[in-house]
Each structure stands twice: as structure tokens, then as C-alpha cells.
Design a protein around this nucleic acid. Structure first.
Lengths: 124, 124
DNA sequence: GACGATATGTAGCGTGCAAACATATTGGCA
DNA sequence: TGCCAATATGTTTGCACGCTACATATCGTC
């Protein structure tokens, strides 16, 4: 799968300019996953698409990152999943739990804090 | 050493409200280290203090994080260190190299990008 | 029939950060 | 004089997260 059309050295490491990996925002992937499930339940593939769309095509998170992360969040009680047959295809659909909603709120606060702190050093 | 006076469950994990660990801002610690060395060379302990002061006491990065990070940045060519005897005590003082300055600039851009993206999901 | 998009997943790896440990000097106070 | 907190530098070990690469299968279209 073609994931980028232009690449270069940026920030001391090889990155692509069109697509951002979750590695760059490590620690905030969980929050973003919860965030895209806030409005409606989605299945894994649709979540990856939603991350792309809501970031204007910048975020490209590989399946090897998303699927384990979803399972982790389910194990933690923040998500609930059930298999459903949509259009003749098996899909595991994830939905936010009550704990997941509270977690999302907490993560929003956490993000505000982090952003404020890092910006104090690097500017905005 | 006392590192916090108040703690609780926040964001699903045990954190302290007064001091933020580098874990929370994983991936941006390097940028902040370079940033505190922008104005003047400092030794490890002074760097930890600078991080605390410039974040209004929020940032508390343990030595087991800072010292290896400084060595890593030196190995990468972003910092240069030399031993100096200050006040009769041996101190390894770190200074930004040319490459380090360029890296800092790159990291600022990177941070802007990350902040924009995450904020698109979590709000500001 | 081939291929790209859709769809779900695992195994193994690299790395950044942290806890715990180890050591030594300086300054102040009792 | 003895004690302790602050100052100061580091290593060892382990963990968790995200990535690469791999594996599999269906659907729609040309």
C-alpha cells in the first residue's frame, strides 16, 4: 500500500510529510481512538479511515498499531466490541463504554496540560 | 526525595498533579532538553532544575531518564559535553552543537504539527 | 482472472522512559 | 563532631508502546 508521496529528513529522522505515524504522538493515540468513537461505534478499518479524514490525511496509523491498541483499550474497560455481520461481512465493531467516556474526558485534560507545558519550552 | 505532595487517579493511571513525568510527553523530551540548552550550556542536574523552573514546577524528570537522554543526544551529535571543575566539583557540562540548533528548529516545527493534529481530535 | 480496496489480525523488534540502586561532595544545623 | 538534606552523576534492568512484516480472506470492478 502506498502511504506517502513525499519524504525527507525532518526532526533528525526519516519521516513523510503527508502522513504522520502514531509514534510521533505516542501516548495520545489512545485518546484519539476514544475520540473517534465518541460520536458512533466503528470497526477497526473504519477507525483508521476516520483518523485519516479527521486529520486532513495527515494521520496514517498501521493496522499493527490500531488492532492491538483497540484490544488493549477493551481489556482496560474503555471499549466494548461485538461481531456484527454488515453487508455479508464480519466486522468487529467497537463502542465507548461509560468508563471510556470518562477516560476520554480525563485524556482531554491531560492533553491540555501537556500542550501547555511543551509550548512553554518550544513556543506555539 | 519528595517529588509530589498530592496524587490521584487521572487519565486512568496513577499520576501526580504537581509533577509531570516525561512519559506523558514522550517523544518531546529531546526537544525540551535542547531547548533549555539554547541560551547557555548546563550540567545534568542544572538541566533537571531548569525543566522544573521553566514549567512552573510541573516537570519532574528522573535522573534515570535525563542522563541517558543527554548521552543519546551527544551520540547523535546534537550536544557536546566537557568536564569542567566548577566550585571544586566535577561537572559534565552539555552544550548545543550546530546540528543541535538545527535539530531544535526542526523539533519546533514537529511539535507545531503534532499539537495541531491532536488538538483537531481533542480540542484545545 | 487479476487486482485494488476492504477487512482483521499476529509475531517479533526497537526504543524511550522509569524504578531502583550505587556513589560522592557540600553546607547547615544541632 | 555527627547527621542529614541538597547537590551531583551515573548504571542496570524491565516494561509498554508502536512499527515492520507477515498471513489471510472477501468484495467490486475491469
Amino acid at each position: 500500500m502506498q502511504t506517502s508521496r513525499m519524504a525527507g529528513v525532518f526532526g533528525g529522522q526519516q519521516v513523510d510529510f503527508l502522513r504522520m505515524r502514531a509514534e510521533t504522538l505516542r501516548g495520545h493515540l489512545d485518546a484519539m481512538l476514544l475520540s473517534v468513537l465518541e460520536s458512533e461505534p466503528l470497526h477497526g478499518y473504519a477507525i483508521i479511515e476516520a483518523l485519516k479524514q479527521r486529520s486532513d490525511g495527515e494521520l496514517d496509523v498501521p493496522t499493527g498499531t490500531v488492532y492491538p491498541a483497540l484490544r488493549r483499550l477493551e481489556r482496560a474497560g474503555f471499549l466494548r466490541s461485538d461481531w456484527s455481520n454488515v453487508g455479508g461481512r464480519e466486522r468487529r465493531t467497537y463502542a465507548l463504554t461509560g468508563a471510556g467516556k470518562r477516560e476520554l474526558t480525563a485524556q482531554r485534560g491531560q492533553w491540555r496540560r501537556v500542550a501547555r507545558t511543551v509550548t512553554a519550552f518550544l513556543g506555539n
